[in-house]
Every structure is written in C-alpha cells, then in structure tokens.
Amino acid sequence: MSKKLILGAVAFIIIIQLIIALQIKPDMSAIGTPPHKVKEIFGRSIPFNGVNVTTVTVSWGIMFFLIVVSIIINTRLRQVPGRTQMIFEIVIEFFDKLCRDTMGDKGHIFMPYVATLFLFILCSNWIGILPFSFIEEPTRDLNTTLGLGIIAFFVAHIAAICYKGIFRYIADYFEPMFEIKGVKIPNVLFFPINAIGELGKLVSHSFRLYGNILGGAIIIQVISNLTRYMILPIGLNLFFGLFVGAVQAFVFAMLALTYIAVLVEG
C-alpha cells in the first residue's frame, strides 16, 4: 500500500515537473553579472559604491532569527531539557569542548564568538536552498565574508596583544631570531614575510567561503537551467547547499579559532 502511494507521489511530481519544465526557457544571461546594487537612498548617495539590498536584508533576517530563538530558549531553560533545548545544549557543549581542546582553559572566553560565527554562517549557507528568487545566500556576496574575515582578524590580533603584551606581539613579527652567544637579535628580513602572511590569512579565510558558496550556487543555477528544473537540482541542493554549507561553516569557525590560538600561544 505505502509503496504504491510513494510511487504514485513520485510519478505525480515528475509529471508536474515536466509540465512546468516545458514552460521554462533557459536563461543564462544573469550568470556572471555583478549583483544589483542600490546607490542612492532619499536623494543621498551611499558610500563604498552602493549596497546590495538582498544581502543586507537576508543577513539582518538571519540575525533577528538567531537572536529571537536564543532569547526564547534562554527564558525556557529547564533542569530536564526538552528536545529543542537538547539540540542547543549539544551545539554549545561541542564548541566549548572544541575551544578547550584547542587553547586550554583560555579557550572558554572565545566559545561564544566561535559558536555565533558557526551558527550565523550555517544559517546563511542553508537559506539558499529555499525556493524563492528574492532570497540569496548572504555569504555569496564578498562583502559579508570579507566583513566576517576582518572581524576574525581583529579578534585574533587584539586577543594576542591582551594576552602577550604589545612588545612580545611586535617581537613575534621578527621571528625566527638570530642567536649569537645567547643574545637574541630581531631579524628584520622576516618582518615583511610575516606581515604579508597575516594579510594572506585574511584573504584566504574570507575568499574560501565566498568561492565555495558562490561556486555551488552558480553550478546549481546553470544545471537547473540546463535540465529545466527536473529532479537533478534536488541532489545538487543537498550536496552544495546542506553538505558543503555545513562543512564550510565549520571550517570557517574552526580556522578563526586556530588563528586566535596560533597568535595567542605562538
């Protein structure tokens, strides 16, 4: 009985898809064009060459969602957790353990930052699988990922200055030092290499997320157009939307933590 029902449902979906597919004409002209930007608001021009409205509204929506959910969960904390509280406790405990494993007891302070980063990027990556044309992943826009990368950069460097002091922080740029008869002499030659290495971390950190999410989104778009939205896009959305989105969110949060650990303990 249930097998027949499932087969019937699949056949029904395929027929509906066929009917829809015959109406759609492939349109590739939107691929590779820069995103639509609003350059003026109330007669005043916006600095930095305009604002991408979709990115801003969707990321504000995600922030609103996360804040509201966490307030609701926090007001209903119980000794014996329910299902929803359980999920959030698992996430928090996982990141707490991760931070403690990476940095020792110091890592406890960075847990809220890393967990927030992960949850925000996860929601941003997963929102792309919703079938509405006005919703796009905020992480598909370089501005979002570069902003997150710059935040991680400043958190790591300010944490390093707080933990090590400004002099040891600056001295680290001159590593590895010469050692003559037990006296350490700072090596000026290595300063540019170390400085560029720090900037390279920022660039690769933010562009990795951007490239992966944009690549997945555009591949889905192209193949959906070629197959006229038949069946295949579901699997692609599962792989590029859910799986790659989750892995990249974890990698981003984990790398931010690793950069902090390297700078604080190095």
């Binding site: 002209s29 590779g32 490239g211 591949i219």
Partner: peptide, 16 residues
C-alpha cells in the same frame, strides 16, 4: 569547483 566557476564565467562572457 573554483576552476569550474571561472570556466562558467568565461563561457557566459558573451552576455556581458
């Protein structure tokens, strides 16, 4: 995926 992204951009360069 990065290489494929650039290849797709280049393939549809005709439109822009």
């Amino acid at each position: 995926i990065f290489a494929l992204l650039i290849a797709i951009f280049l393939t549809f360069k005709i439109y822009n």
